[in-house]
Design a protein around this nucleic acid. Structure first.
Ligand code: ZN
Ligand code: ZN
Ligand code: ZN
Ligand code: ZN
Lengths: 166, 166
DNA sequence: TTCAATTGTGTTACAGTATAACATTACAAC
DNA sequence: GTTGTAATGTTATACTGTAACACAATTGAA
């Protein structure tokens, strides 16, 4: 983070939507939204930015309860499987999003190198475009990771105008 | 790798093209293609598949010469900067490609989960499409990572037809 | 020539990320 | 109750990447 902590984000009505999505997915797939998994999800709900696995470990651990990294990774894997959490491969970090993923939605993550914020987008044409490309190469695609690095709007205006009142 | 080691790849005339590209980039940017960097590049030249950083460490090390991970990472960073090597974020691995990258070419990597092979493609529309998306979100993109996971053609036909002569 | 300044490497140690292997619990089905 | 499955606990370890500082080589002045 190069300059101040502008760029707050949306920690509000987040939890409910996430949990709702998660429960729906669990019901659909016959798996359980256990305590641990809910706890992990709750941490995401309150987090405006991507979380590192070991941050989650820390936040879940107390003097009387040491949560192990592998437990967290297992919960993350689960939440990724049901489509609630996404791994940001370029950051070794994770975000929770509750888009009602219509089968093939191609998510693009835009990651601000300055403040760490992550925004996401769905490119309508992208899914077809990627599928066509894969096809042309005889490749059967089963998943993808699309991440942009750069600067978010807030950070750009902050850089252009470091102190608000000249 | 689930089944046999089909899917050989192109280790042939590779080295020269890579080195040529690298030298050109160095000349253009006033940096040096040192011995270590050339050695790393040479390992890529002979490798049909992505390399892990510590694989390179091993291959460069001998009883009398222990190359340290950080030296390898530094060389990798350099080769990435000049555009010869790409990091596959989802694999923690690296590939060398010598595409004469016209400024904005948007590379898409297709990574076979079965044999580990990596193919690449350039989507003509992609660069504009991503730029438009970023714009719409006020995001200034400075780099990206686009990776597909799936199965390559060879692996699919091998799976469909495990033993070649029924 | 000697003196920076820059670039690249060596060396050591360490931080950060992720998983293996096996024991244990919880719960449902038979 | 026993069996099977899903999930978690526990311990240890493997894998990935970097910090910090010393050293060497190059270049371009003073
Ligand atoms: Zn910022
Ligand atoms: Zn920002
Ligand atoms: Zn295969
Ligand atoms: Zn394959």
């Amino acid at each position: 983070m190069v300059h101040g902590d502008h760029g707050a984000a949306l920690p509000e009505a987040f939890p409910d939507k996430l949990s709702t999505s998660a429960l729906a997915q669990c019901a659909a797939t016959g798996r359980a939204l256990t305590t641990l998994r809910r706890e992990v999800l709750a941490i995401f709900a309150g987090a405006p930015r991507p979380l590192k696995a070991y941050e989650i470990v820390e936040r879940l651990s107390t003097p009387s309860r040491r949560v192990s990294p592998i437990s967290v990774y297992r919960s993350l894997d689960f939440l990724i499987e049901i489509g609630i959490v996404h791994r940001l491969a370029t950051q070794n970090a994770f975000v929770a999003r509750d888009r009602d993923r219509a089968q093939d939605e191609t998510l693009v993550f835009m990651i601000c190198q300055c403040c760490g914020d992550v925004d996401e987008a769905v490119l309508p044409g992208m899914t077809r475009s990627l599928a066509a490309t894969a096809d042309a190469h005889g490749f059967r695609s089963r998943g993808h990771s699309i991440e942009l690095q750069g600067e978010c709007e807030d950070c750009r205006s902050a850089l252009a105008n470091p102190n608000r009142r000249g």
